[in-house]
Structures are given as structure tokens and as C-alpha cells.
Design a protein around this nucleic acid. Structure first.
Lengths: 166, 166
DNA sequence: ATTTTTCATTTGTATATACAAATGTGTATT
DNA sequence: AATACACATTTGTATATACAAATGAAAAAT
């Protein structure tokens, strides 16, 4: 099951090999493709692992992220557009996401007194408790992958990714 | 808009700083977190860029991937479970995805004569034409990012990602 | 030969992603 | 003060992701 990643990876590389002949540039197209797929794959592996971990806690990945943003506020309320701005997936639907967290009693929602357009979201004690329970699990997850590299290699990886992206 | 990535990135790192004090290990937790977020981000940037590119062609990302898999078969039909196995997102719904491609007349679907359980999917000429039109666009996309690194750096990045993942 | 098991696909349900339009509120313009 | 514009959120629709259950066909077991 988990091995199917490798399949796609090699499949797509092979499938597009011949295009390389057509266009010459400083960077060979197969290496350019490989890096791109490699990043997508790695992210998928991380994502699957993460989903597996939080499954028993009745939280989706995005719900978890929102709770993390709320905890980071240390009691200061946040409104919808603040949350949306800070979420990984920019265009997801914050209203419906908060609805779900409300049902689970992990957040509260109230009208902002200063500006009736805005809404104030706060994390509840129940939400904080679930996060606290999850903290060591998440750290375990992050270290599981990071431990395969040295500190120098991790910093190198960060630098290369930032250079690649920007 | 695109800058909101940076916001999340730094937000999450800051939000979890204090946890680092609690658990000591060979790899500092903030570097472990940073690498993980860095990979997710970079993938998101690539994904958004890709979506932007194929939008005018009336294809979703997964529909494009399936067409690529079909073209890679060079005329040999594929059945549903083959496609599912090779797709990036393992659990997506191949039946409904193929339905959409059928409506656009980019694939054909027929019962496998040797095994009536199976179904044979083939790419049509129209599908091939769209892919051919998209090829240079995709190459442009892949090289746009790759050109920011040297060949040596790209290979280094590939190695680090593979080591990190496996 | 009939029953059971496995395989390939489809269908259903819940949530997530993506984008556009609608609603209601505050601010600026005249 | 009335109108126009911008802001914050909600609602709607289409597609994608994730998983479980249902359907129907082939293979294996008895």
C-alpha cells in the first residue's frame, strides 16, 4: 500500500523521458521533474503518517491546525479572516471548519463587540486538553523523520527547499 | 495572498517553541518541525502554481495525472485498480474521476473481454492532443523552480529527501 | 456442483478544497 | 443623510480526499 508511491514516482519519470530530447536547457528536465515529484511524495508520506496519528483523536488535519493557531493566541480571540490567513490551505472554508469544532466543544464563537462584522473564536479547556495529549505524539512524528538526517543535513535541506521555492 | 504561506510557517514554529524545552533529543525539535513545515509549504507552492497553469485547460490536477498515466501506456488499456495504484492520492475515487474524463471525451471505457470484472480505460486522440498542448507548459513549470538550483544542488536535494523519507 | 473467498469496481457518506455569489456591517463620498 | 464602496462572514456548488459498505464476477475449497 505505502509502496505505491514509488510506483507513481518512477512511472511519471519514465513516461516523460522522451520529452527531454526535445528541449535543451541548463537543467536536464528529468532532474527537474524528479525533484518536483520527490517533494510531492515526501509531503504525502508525512501527511499520511500525520493523519494516521490524529485519527484516534476525532480531529481532521485542518481542525488540528486551527486549534494550534488558537492555542498560539494565548487567550486572545481570533476572527475568521485571521484564521484563514494562517491556515496551510488558504481557500478552505473556515466557517464550516469552526462549526465542526463547536460541535465538539473545542472552541467558542461570539460576536465581536467592537465590530459586529467580526466574530471572536477562542479555544476551550477541552480543546487545550486534546492538544496537550497530542503534543508528544506530534513531536514523535516530527522526530521520526528528522532523526534520519544529521543536524547539518536538516539545515542543508531547509536551505535548499527555501532556495528552490523563492 | 501567496505570502500567507510565510505567515503559517513562522506562526507554527513560534507557537510550539516552548515544547522544545521539555524534551531533549539528538535533533532539536524546532529544526525537526521546520523541515516538516518547509516540505509541506514547498509542495503547496508547487501545487498552487500547477493548478494555475492547468486551469485554462478544463482539467483538475488528478484528471491530468490520470491522463498522463494513460498516455504512458502507449495504447495498452489500463483498468481501474492499475490507475488507482499509480495515482499520487491513493484513495481518491477513480470511478468518478474517469466519469468526468468520459464526459470530456478524453478517455474511453469498455468491459475487459478476458475478465468481466475488469474495465479497460484508454486515452482518446482528444486527450492526447490536450496533453501535447500542455507538455511545454508543464516543462516550463518544472524548470521554473529547478533553475534556482544547480544540478549538484538538485541531486543533493533529491538525496536528502529520500533519506529523510525512508 | 455448490459454497466460500477473493478480486474489481461502484456507491454512499463525511470532510476538505476551490471558487463565486450573497448577506450584513462599517467606512468614505457627495 | 443617502449612496457607494470596502470588509467580514456565510452560503452555494463542484470537485477531491478518505473510508466503509455494497455489488457482481472469478477463483478456490469442500
Amino acid at each position: 500500500m505505502k509502496n505505491s508511491y514509488t510506483f507513481v514516482y518512477t512511472n511519471l519519470v519514465i513516461e516523460t523521458m522522451k520529452i527531454e530530447d526535445e528541449i535543451k536547457s541548463t537543467i536536464p528536465i528529468d532532474i527537474a521533474k524528479k525533484v518536483l515529484l520527490n517533494i510531492s511524495f515526501t509531503k504525502n508520506v508525512l501527511h499520511d503518517n500525520f493523519q494516521e496519528l490524529i485519527k484516534p483523536y476525532d480531529l481532521s488535519g485542518e481542525q488540528y491546525n486551527v486549534l494550534r493557531i488558537l492555542r498560539g493566541q494565548k487567550g486572545k480571540p481570533v476572527n475568521m479572516c485571521d484564521i484563514q490567513e494562517r491556515m496551510i490551505a488558504k481557500n478552505s472554508n473556515t466557517t464550516r471548519l469552526i462549526d465542526k469544532l463547536l460541535l465538539k466543544q473545542m472552541v467558542t464563537r461570539s460576536e465581536c463587540p467592537a465590530n459586529r462584522r467580526k466574530i471572536e473564536i477562542l479555544i476551550t479547556q477541552k480543546g487545550l486538553d486534546v492538544l496537550a495529549e497530542l503534543d508528544p505524539v506530534i513531536i514523535q512524528h516530527e522526530k521520526f523523520f528528522a532523526n534520519k538526517l544529521t543536524i547539518e543535513e536538516l539545515e542543508q535541506l531547509n536551505n535548499l527547499l527555501e532556495k528552490y521555492r523563492n
